[in-house]
Design a protein around this nucleic acid. Structure first.
Lengths: 192, 192
DNA sequence: TGTATTTCTTAACTTAAGTGAACGAGTTGA
DNA sequence: TCAACTCGTTCACTTAAGTTAAGAAATACA
């Protein structure tokens, strides 16, 4: 499992054995059961997550309704905005499947980064990359219709459609569950 | 004008006079006329932008139509995804008003960062902050209706509604110009 | 295994956004 | 100054999403 982590890191920087051991000594690995809530609205958290195996989702509760806005699966990372802004969280994070995560703490990160400036460079590269990726996702979302967004998802992340309940997919795609259901029926109709 | 830059930077790190001079010697300031196209679809660019004064916008051309996805105004920065991914650009960037920009080059940035690791830390902090901000914007977009998105914009960035043509605002809000026009009329109606 | 709960689908109806077209105000440029 | 454009608005019509409700299907769990 550690290999996955080092393989990921090697895309950005190369690590000495010393550095690898320093990382491992931080005891970042955490195994989490399906349904576990990692963060609640109103909490002050300093934790960032990296998914080695499984899936976590972020959602808001608005007028009693869950609005899912993102899923993070294998080799994806998420730092909640509340950690960056040092404000109470506006959303929830929960585990969609039994998962294996890396959980890091922003204070500990700072400490490590100051000891190994290399990590700082990696974090910069990684967050620049995420920023660009998220920008493209956002642009695609803005410029397409709900139906087109579903078709895009089918293309780009077919796994999500399998592993995620439909009512969560719906708000992820910016619509109501009933609309997603209808839209899927419409697409099947068209095909035949 | 340099003061604005240094004031901005001071939110993240503190600079010695040496470092300030190193920055200034890079000759980053560029004054740009309204309508200037800074980046075209298909181009390979290495430029990042920081707006000191004025406004730039990013847009796609899809089936002959412009789809505006973002505006950047005073003290906001933008690095096109194509610079990060080293791929041809999918979108355009143009100047909405006569503007004063900081234009930096990714190669030059790397050089400066390796000379002044402090800059690297600043870039990491800044892009983490942008990532969190953009995440919140994206979530807000997903979870609201077109009308609600317009009302939110009215709250959060009333300046944009003044300085940006409506047909560009429309696609920024994920709808057609006619819909925005109608929706505005509807809101006025409600108020009275 | 059977019951309770959650999730998905369907349907009828309402509301809002997309589409195509026309018009007027404002701007640009020959 | 006048013709050509651009931009915003309005309108009639179409299409799709929101809403409410009901029932079927799948899942959880006692």
């Amino acid at each position: 499992m550690q290999d996955l982590l080092f393989e990921f890191i090697s895309k950005y920087i190369s690590l000495s054995n010393d550095e690898k051991n320093a990382l491992l000594s931080l005891d970042l690995f955490r195994s989490v059961k399906k349904g576990t809530v990692l963060l609640k609205e109103g909490q002050n958290s300093k934790e960032s997550y990296f998914v080695l195996k499984g899936c976590i989702r972020t959602y808001y509760v608005m007028e009693g309704e869950e609005k899912t806005t993102a899923f993070y699966t294998e080799m994806e990372a998420f730092t909640p905005p509340c950690v960056i802004n040092k404000t109470p969280s506006e959303n929830y994070i929960s585990c969609l499947e039994d998962s294996l995560l890396l959980v890091s703490n922003s204070e500990m990160e700072e400490e490590v980064n100051s000891k190994f400036p290399k990590f700082d460079i990696m974090c910069r590269m990684f967050s620049e990359e995420l920023l660009a990726k998220q920008r493209i996702d956002f642009d695609e979302f803005k410029t397409s219709s709900p139906e087109q967004r579903y078709l895009n998802l089918l293309q780009n992340r077919p796994d999500l459609i399998q592993r995620v309940p439909q009512y969560q997919l719906a708000s992820y795609l910016g619509m109501k569950p009933q609309s997603l259901s209808r839209l899927r029926a419409r697409i099947l109709e068209k095909k035949s």
